[in-house]
Design a binder for these strands. Structure first.
Length: 482
RNA sequence: CGGGGCGUAGCGCAGCCAGGUAGCGCACUUGAAUGGGGUUCAAGUGGUCGGAGGUUCAAAUCCUCUCGCCCCGACCA
């Protein structure tokens, strides 16, 4: 097993993850420390993520633009919390054209500063607002430890930056975009994320409030999969984004920012992968269907390939992302395993016996082996049959991930219980919380668990804080996190 | 940056303790037989043993330094 598949997750989740990424040919490390190359298959997945998100951004009135990679160091320093948060992980350019620069340039770790600077020049009147811009870009953060997709020195993401005339509007935008992320995660990536607010300890450097979608990975750890920040007027004051309101008074704009990165690829891998490797949700999979023809003799080959090609053309014309694996040099069994490692949601097997019946065999990636197989699927109506199957797979993946998350979410009422739970079962721990930031730090030191969020969905009842014993209405979700 | 581990063919490893002219599996090439779950057999290609210095008649092996990677911590989308 171990010699031909990936390491079972129970043995070593970290190794399992790296092996899945590499066997699926999603990405590799490069000679530059902590930097990853996203291989064509991994990039195709990212492109589908981009398309799904970008469509939602357009629907909510946003437009794309591009801001530069290099930012003057002084810009970073204008917002005190922001520079404090990012200073340790900045990559700095000190030379250009063979000379030392008068002022060092920072490779953007995020673009609030340069965009804030430009917004200050673009905004004069309330009529210029809201400004709703997104950019697809790369950013660099000099992290100490890296992991493919989850934390790399350079990563790809989108970052939305908006400016509004009123606090209410900016707060609405912050929540709207978190909702867009949650909708994407649930309906495209089949990951049942929890929406909530970050604790002060965990919020974005420079934000007034940060919101997050938190996903549970296969080992019970949490992964922050997208964030949306309400920046108040902090950046507007730092970058002088002022406008005249309807009363002809000067006011600072209210800004937001929100981002989702290639880390989402890591989330998909860890939320759905199994011992055979990657399992991709149909809506994002680069290939939704792979057709594997099976034959023994040359005369069989021609009839099998004729039907395989016919099915391929029909599906393609029907808008299905389909691939025909017509390689001669490897066996059918090899191809099965090959595409399983790559997570293709649905495999269509076509052999001589199927040709006789003018039918095919479906094999679901999310249900390996016999249970996921359907024999004798008629070629007539194949497009609808495939689309149905893909819909079912998508829905089942979400349902399975939701069940997994719920089964691994526990409630405790005392700190002893809390520690025991993290030791024995892990996962998310849902508690009443009325502690301080210092309490949070102490818990992190002692258990490695942090507050992932204060979920939006809270029961309308009062409870006792598991740590302080005080009465509170606030719920927190604690977990170990990537 | 602290603690642990590892650098030998594209990948995974053995050889090192007890120095003696570099090996295995996978992959790759060629040929044949196979073909409904990672086929089999045969013949091949491919290596500055991470780098530098030292000890020695002789270093993958011993010594010193150095570079890099992985895992665990601190940091984090």
């Amino acid at each position: 097993m171990a010699d031909k598949g990936v390491t079972p997750r129970s043995e070593d989740y970290s190794r399992w993850y790296t092996e899945v990424v590499q066997k699926a040919e999603l990405a590799d490390y490069t000679p530059v420390k902590g930097c990853m190359v996203i291989r064509p298959y991994g990039y195709a997945l990212w492109e589908n993520i981009q398309t799904a998100l970008d469509g939602r951004f357009k629907e909510t009135g946003h437009v794309n633009a591009y801001f530069p990679l290099l930012i003057p160091m002084s810009f970073l320093q204008k917002e005190a919390d922001h520079v404090e948060g990012f200073a340790p992980e900045l990559a700095v350019v000190t030379h250009g054209g063979g000379k030392e620069l008068d002022e060092p340039l920072v490779i953007r770790p995020t673009s609030e500063t340069i965009i804030g600077h430009m917004y200050s020049q673009w905004v004069r009147s309330y009529r210029d607002l809201p400004l709703l811009i997104n950019q697809w870009a790369n950013v660099v953060r000099w992290e100490m430890r890296t992991r493919l997709f989850l934390r790399t020195t350079e990563f790809l993401w989108q970052e939305g930056h908006t400016a509004h005339a009123t606090q209410e509007e900016a707060e609405e935008e912050t929540e709207r975009m978190l909702g867009v992320y949650a909708d994407f995660a649930i309906n495209e990536a089949a990951i049942p994320v929890i929406q909530g607010k970050k604790s002060d300890r965990e919020k974005f450097a420079g934000a007034v409030a940060s919101y997050t979608i938190e996903a549970m990975m296969g080992n019970g750890w949490a992964l922050q999969s997208g964030t949306s920040h309400f920046l108040g007027q902090k950046f507007a004051r730092a970058f002088d984004i002022k406008f005249l309101n309807q009363e002809n008074e000067t006011d600072y704009a209210w800004t937001t920012s929100w981002g989702l990165s290639t880390r989402m690829v890591g989330a998909i891998i860890m939320a759905h992968g199994d011992d055979q490797g990657l399992v991709l949700p149909p809506r994002l999979a680069p290939h939704q269907v792979v057709i594997v023809p099976i034959w023994r003799k040359d005369e069989e080959r021609s009839t099998v390939m004729a039907l395989a090609d016919q099915v391929f053309q029909t599906l393609k014309a029907g808008g299905v992302r389909v691939r025909l694996d017509d390689r001669d040099e490897v066996s059918a069994g090899f191809k099965f395993n090959d595409w399983e490692m790559r997570g293709v949601p649905l495999r269509i097997e076509i052999g001589p016996r199927d040709v006789e019946q003018n039918a095919v065999v479906f094999a679901r990636r999310d249900m390996p082996g016999k249970p996921g197989k359907t024999f004798g699927v008629p070629v007539d109506g194949i497009v609808a049959a495939v689309q149905d199957a893909l819909r079912v797979i998508q829905a089942d993946m979400l349902a399975r991930a939701t069940t997994f998350r719920d089964e691994n979410t526990h409630e405790v009422s005392s700190y002893d219980e809390f520690r025991a739970m993290l030791e024995s079962k892990g996962g998310f721990v849902r508690v009443f919380w009325d502690g301080s930031g210092e309490d949070e730090d102490r818990i992190k030191d002692e258990t490695k668990a942090t507050i992932r969020c204060f979920p939006f969905e809270m029961p309308d009842e009062e409870g006792v804080c598991f740590y302080t014993g005080r009465k509170t209405r606030r719920i927190a979700i604690f977990a170990r996190a990537y």
